[in-house]
């Protein structure tokens, strides 16, 4: 009988993409597939994909808007209790030198006043437990930590 491969207790993924929405989509697909193979269940996988999507969209739409053809490096490390991601890009610096607070959208008022944006950072803050931004050497570096609960990974 063939021996089962030893269960991996860590997953390490390194991706380099262009700052385009289609490239973001491709990277998210790759991350989701690898996390599924690592045993992460559908719901926590969706949360990781959402946080990454919001952070990467922000880089594409803001940091790299003035300079198309930017590059983004994605480093993802998953362990038993958490997933840590480091995103580096060569786009413009974050306004104010830090990540936006991401307040919940104000939903009072009329339909016409409803926000069509501004949910991204709110979602990142809600789903992560560690967020750190640094600008160094002409590069943005965003570190995001996402906690995993017991049961988020198949036994």
């Amino acid at each position: 009988m063939a021996q089962l491969p030893a269960r991996q207790d860590r997953l390490s993924l390194r991706l380099h993409i262009d700052s385009r929405p289609e490239a973001v989509r491709g990277a998210l697909g790759r991350v989701s597939r690898d996390l599924a193979r690592f045993g992460i269940r559908t719901e926590p996988r969706g949360a990781v994909e959402l946080v990454l999507a919001e952070a990467l969209n922000n880089i594409v739409e803001h940091a790299c808007r003035a300079a198309p053809g930017g590059h983004i490096a994605i480093a993802l490390d998953a362990g038993p209790s958490r997933i840590d991601v480091v995103l580096r890009d060569d786009g413009g610096p974050m306004p104010g030198g830090d990540v936006p607070r991401g307040a919940a959208a104000c939903l009072d008022g009329s339909c016409a006043d409803l926000p069509e944006g501004g949910f991204g950072w709110f979602l990142i803050h809600r789903l992560s437990d560690r967020l750190r931004y640094r600008r160094a050497g002409g590069e943005n570096r965003l570190e995001i930590g996402i906690p995993l609960s017991r049961g988020d990974r198949r036994a």
């Binding site: 994909e49 959402l50 999507a53 919001e54 969209n57 409803l114 069509e116 944006g117 949910f119 991204g120």
Partner: peptide, 16 residues
């Protein structure tokens, strides 16, 4: 199966 804040904003815009 997947929506991000851009997609959410697009649904809000369609509603408006």
């Amino acid at each position: 199966q997947f929506i991000d804040s851009s997609g959410l904003g697009a649904i809000v815009a369609a509603m408006k």
